[in-house]
Design a protein around this nucleic acid. Sequence first.
DNA 1: TGGGATTTGTTCGTATGTATC
DNA 2: TGATACATACGAACAAATCCC
Lengths: 81, 81
Amino acid sequence: MTIDHDGALPVYKQLANLLRGQIERGELRPNRPIPAESRLMQIHEVGRDTVRKAIAILREEGLVIAIQGRGTFVKPKDEAE
Amino acid sequence: MTIDHDGALPVYKQLANLLRGQIERGELRPNRPIPAESRLMQIHEVGRDTVRKAIAILREEGLVIAIQGRGTFVKPKDEAE
DNA sequence: TGGGATTTGTTCGTATGTATC
DNA sequence: TGATACATACGAACAAATCCC
């Protein structure tokens, strides 16, 4: 799964969809951290702004929680709100 | 030599150039530590992010080596690669 | 043995500027 | 005008390694 930098959908939305899929498939596991912003920047060759916008979507959806100094973690399903 | 916070060149590149000059002139000597990040922040009135970006450049150039818990040291010339 | 101080390493939080579309 | 995207810059918090008493 890759990012289409010239696609119709904005890159940050593509990245949010990609990460959501990894969470739903269990590739990113509950209570475990997702790759750091810096890693996601490297992996997907996007800027930090784009990474943070993508993660912001997942936060609004209640899928992840970001903790300063620690990382961003996948919420367990039963904690969804 | 000072940092121009409103210059055309990014602050972290200016700082890298400044430190490189001090190394080349021997003001920062081989096998000796350069000032700690916290000191460089005070001296040049910049944030840690900027200091670390500047040092990252010097590391990539093989001019210094950073050791966690110890400091950042000027490499001897004959160890240059 | 332990604890505190120092230093680099890592991570998220926030803001600004620039460029493009 | 606004949304998208990247780069720069500073803050804050935590972690890990080292050093010293």
